[in-house]
Simulated scan of single mutants.
Amino acid sequence: MGEGIGLIVIIFAGIIGFFVFLYFVPVGLWITARFSNVKVGLFELVLMRVRKVPPSVVVNSLITATKAGLQLSTKELETHYLAGGHVPSVIKALISADKANINLEFKQATAIDLAGRDVFEAVQISVNPKVITTPKVAAVAADGIQLIAVARVTVRANIQQLVGGAGEDTILARVGEGIVTSIGSAQTHKEVLENPDKISKLVLQRGLDAGTAFEILSIDIADVDVGTNIGAKLQTDQASADLKVAEAKAEERRAMAVAEEQEMKAKAQEAKAKVIEAEAEVPKAMAEAFRSGNLGIMDYYKMENIQADTDMRESISKPGSSSSRKKDK
């Protein structure tokens, strides 16, 4: 019984050891590489496993590159994988560039891949240009009419400037700036509507693809719509602002006039008070004149008659009095 259990353990351990051996020594992958004319040693595959590099990724990529006529080594592919690159994507990009007669070296492809760009997609865009549609760009012509334009930009990847070159966002921003400048330089919005291709020509002349990872092939204006009348709106706003300023100045003048009127009333009240005060001194002066003998009784009656006559004349001369109405009749 004990011998049977021991035999089962030995067999089980042998099976596990066999699979462990196949894991560290990928014999099947080595045989595939040999039949594909790829020179890779069995011990080299074991070392890849130890360095935590998937042998299948390196060997299969090397087989694909060899079948396409590319001369690469396992060391180069392994180094790129350890640097964090995408080996299959680089191999596909190199094969695609070779078939399209595009000069792309392995080091350049790996640099593009490690820079964070999809090198295979870049080669595809270099072979088949890509169309980028700009968002709606609003600009104002010299006559104050707003125009809203949409452009389609056809670009081709510039392999030589993929590392360090600006991306699509820069292209869109520069094209939008060029559209705004072109519309703003037009005398009237009708000129733009009649010949939208002028925008394309002016924008292309500015060399907007300098320092970018793309080469602009063409800029086509897809749509131009008329927006609001910015000039009229600005004039309306200016008129409204001028009206408010005028109203403020008028209110200031009215306030000053009211203040002056109040000041005049205050002065009149002050003068009236002085007159009343002076009139109050008259009886005192007359009494003093009687006591001193400077004023007689006849002089007093004569003065009273003169005052009465003066009051009567003033009453007659006032508008609305009965004597005045009889005189007018």
Rank of each mutant, 00 (worst) to 15 (best):
G320D: 06
T228C: 03
R254Y: 08
Q269E: 13
T170D: 13
Q269K: 15
W30L: 02
A248Q: 13
A289V: 03
A222W: 04
K302D: 06
V59Y: 10
V175A: 02
L7N: 06
A97C: 06
F214C: 07
L234Q: 15
I219S: 04
E251N: 12
G69Q: 12
V275N: 03
Y81I: 02
I216D: 10
H86I: 05
I31A: 09
L243G: 00
D309E: 11
L77N: 01
N101R: 15
T310I: 13
L202T: 09
K327Y: 15
E44A: 08
I132W: 03
V275S: 04
K274M: 06
A100C: 10
N103M: 13
K244F: 06
P319S: 14
I125C: 00
L47C: 08
E168C: 03
I125F: 03
G167L: 11
E194S: 12
A278S: 13
D237T: 10
I31S: 04
A83Y: 07
S315Q: 14
A65W: 06
K198S: 13
S292G: 07
D309I: 05
D237S: 11
D242W: 09
M48K: 01
I148A: 01
E76C: 00
T212N: 01
V9C: 02
D169Q: 15
V258N: 09
F19T: 02
A139G: 07
A280S: 13
A259S: 12
Y23V: 10
R253E: 12
M1T: 07
A97N: 05
V226K: 15
K107L: 07
D220N: 14
I112A: 01
S321E: 10
L70T: 03
I297K: 06
K327G: 12
N128E: 05
I183G: 04
S36Q: 09
G296V: 01
T64L: 15
L172N: 01
P88L: 13
V38D: 01
D220C: 03
Y81D: 03
E277W: 08
K318P: 01
L77E: 02
Q146H: 02
S73Y: 06
L162W: 15
V282S: 01
G116R: 05
L243I: 09
S200W: 04
A115H: 01
R325T: 14
F43S: 13
E44W: 06
L202H: 05
I8W: 07
I145Q: 07
D299S: 08
K274W: 10
S322T: 14
V163F: 11
S36H: 09
T66P: 05
I5M: 11
Q307V: 11
S317K: 14
D197A: 14
K198P: 00
V150N: 06
G14F: 06
E76F: 05
I31H: 11
V87L: 06
L7M: 08
E168G: 02
S324G: 10
G296K: 03
D225F: 13
V226Q: 12
R152C: 07
D143P: 08
A115C: 00
A232P: 05
A93W: 11
A257D: 12
G69L: 09
